[in-house]
Simulated scan of single mutants.
Amino acid sequence: MKRYGLLGNRSRDFLTYGGRVLTHHNAAELEFLVPVGAQVCELPRDIPNEQTLPIAQHPSMAAVRWPLNRSEFR
């Protein structure tokens, strides 16, 4: 399964939380959730799962129901 991450527009590094790369399996959903300024890119295969964190597990996403229902957002 493909994994997608967010590249910071200035750092050009994948965005992390707690040292782990934030990921999601759906590029379109990730683009919808993320503010302007970060680019959604496919993660290289050499980043092990242990070094990633699904965005659904990020504390700021605790109130979001998964799978994502865009109609719940304004």
Results as ranks from 00 to 15, higher is better:
residue 31 E to F: 01
residue 30 L to Y: 14
residue 60 S to V: 09
residue 21 V to C: 05
residue 50 E to K: 10
residue 46 D to S: 11
residue 61 M to L: 14
residue 45 R to F: 07
residue 68 L to G: 01
residue 72 E to Y: 10
residue 72 E to Q: 11
residue 74 R to E: 14
residue 54 P to Y: 15
residue 26 N to A: 03
residue 74 R to C: 12
residue 59 P to K: 06
residue 47 I to R: 05
residue 69 N to P: 02
residue 70 R to K: 15
residue 60 S to G: 02
residue 33 L to P: 08
residue 10 R to E: 14
residue 25 H to D: 08
residue 65 R to M: 07
residue 15 L to M: 10
residue 46 D to H: 13
residue 32 F to S: 12
residue 60 S to T: 07
residue 65 R to Q: 14
residue 63 A to I: 06
residue 24 H to I: 12
residue 59 P to E: 08
residue 28 A to Q: 11
residue 45 R to H: 08
residue 38 A to S: 13
residue 46 D to V: 13
residue 21 V to A: 12
residue 4 Y to I: 04
residue 50 E to T: 15
residue 26 N to Q: 13
residue 35 P to T: 02
residue 8 G to H: 05
residue 9 N to P: 08
residue 52 T to V: 15
residue 36 V to I: 07
residue 13 D to G: 10
residue 58 H to E: 06
residue 53 L to F: 13
residue 41 C to Q: 05
residue 17 Y to V: 06
residue 71 S to I: 15
residue 13 D to C: 08
residue 2 K to T: 02
residue 13 D to I: 09
residue 5 G to K: 02
residue 70 R to I: 06
residue 8 G to E: 03
residue 62 A to V: 12
residue 16 T to D: 01
residue 57 Q to R: 06
residue 65 R to K: 10
residue 5 G to Q: 00
residue 17 Y to M: 11
residue 21 V to Y: 14
residue 47 I to N: 04
residue 51 Q to V: 09
residue 33 L to C: 09
residue 31 E to N: 13
residue 46 D to K: 10
residue 28 A to K: 08
residue 8 G to T: 07
residue 45 R to K: 04
residue 45 R to W: 12
residue 25 H to Q: 07
residue 63 A to S: 08
residue 5 G to A: 09
residue 14 F to M: 02
residue 50 E to Q: 12
residue 39 Q to C: 08
residue 23 T to V: 15
residue 66 W to E: 04
residue 47 I to F: 12
residue 69 N to H: 09
residue 45 R to V: 00
residue 9 N to G: 05
residue 11 S to V: 04
residue 53 L to W: 04
residue 33 L to K: 10
residue 11 S to P: 00
